[in-house]
């Protein structure tokens, strides 16, 4: 493996100026083979990238806000997540099954993938770097309260902490608790309080006016 190849070969992506890692080189080589042999067309790949880029935590925030204002929707979201998402026109495809977990004042759910970086991408988009870090993945299962404290979240000892290790085909979406003082807020205003981190379970939804 050439360590000093600065990546100016044919597989370099647009705007890529850093030194390519061996994994990037390998991915590039596989990609050109797949297109050369007609297995996939490059416009299919760009369409998939566009689809991925269009998915952001705003999609999840919309789902959570609806669950806060509509108890029937929330009940369906917790029992048949796919059907509830379809009702909101959120297409999660058929690759994975999404399951929603509700945080309450008694139970706090937090999600990790200790094996790699499984993440509900169809609803939250691309995962943050810390979610993929060895530090988060290895520590949140062993010491969840300590890791949550580093995120600024101190949980009462009475709260049951449930760590979900999403090792397989299920992708978990956390429904954070609705913040106090939001009785008069509109659904759009509520969605603005739902951060990406609160849907992973490492933060609470924001208080209004913050």
């Amino acid at each position: 493996m050439e360590e000093h190849n600065h990546g100016h070969d044919a597989h370099t992506q647009v705007g890529d100026s850093h030194e390519m890692t061996s994994y990037e080189k390998r991915a590039g080589a596989i990609l050109s083979l797949l297109t050369e042999k007609g297995v996939v067309a490059s416009d299919e790949i760009w369409r998939a990238i566009d689809d991925m880029d269009s998915r952001t935590p705003a999609l999840g925030a919309k789902v959570v806000a609806r669950a806060w204002v509509d108890p029937e929707f929330k009940a369906q979201l917790l029992t048949d997540t796919k059907a509830a998402l379809t009702e909101l026109d959120v297409d999660i495809g058929s690759l994975n099954t999404v399951v929603a977990l509700e945080n309450t004042d008694k139970v706090h759910n937090v999600v990790v993938c200790t094996l790699c970086s499984c993440y509900p991408r169809t609803i939250l988009g691309v995962p943050p770097d810390w979610y993929k870090s060895l530090s988060y993945r290895s520590r949140v299962v062993v010491d969840p309260r300590g890791v949550l404290r580093e995120f600024g979240l101190e949980l009462d000892p009475d709260v049951e902490v449930r760590v979900y290790d999403s090792t397989a085909d299920i992708r978990y979406l956390v429904i954070p608790s609705r913040p106090a003082g939001t009785e008069a807020a509109t659904e759009d205003e509520l969605a603005g309080l739902v951060s990406r981190d609160s849907m992973i379970g490492v933060a609470m939804a924001s208080a209004p006016g913050k």
Partner: peptide, 17 residues
């Protein structure tokens, strides 16, 4: 975890085939 002493009610949930 042998040394887990945060709260006895804390749980770990894992998907297993």
């Amino acid at each position: 975890w042998e040394n887990y002493n945060a709260s006895p009610q804390d749980k770990l949930l894992i998907d297993i085939y």
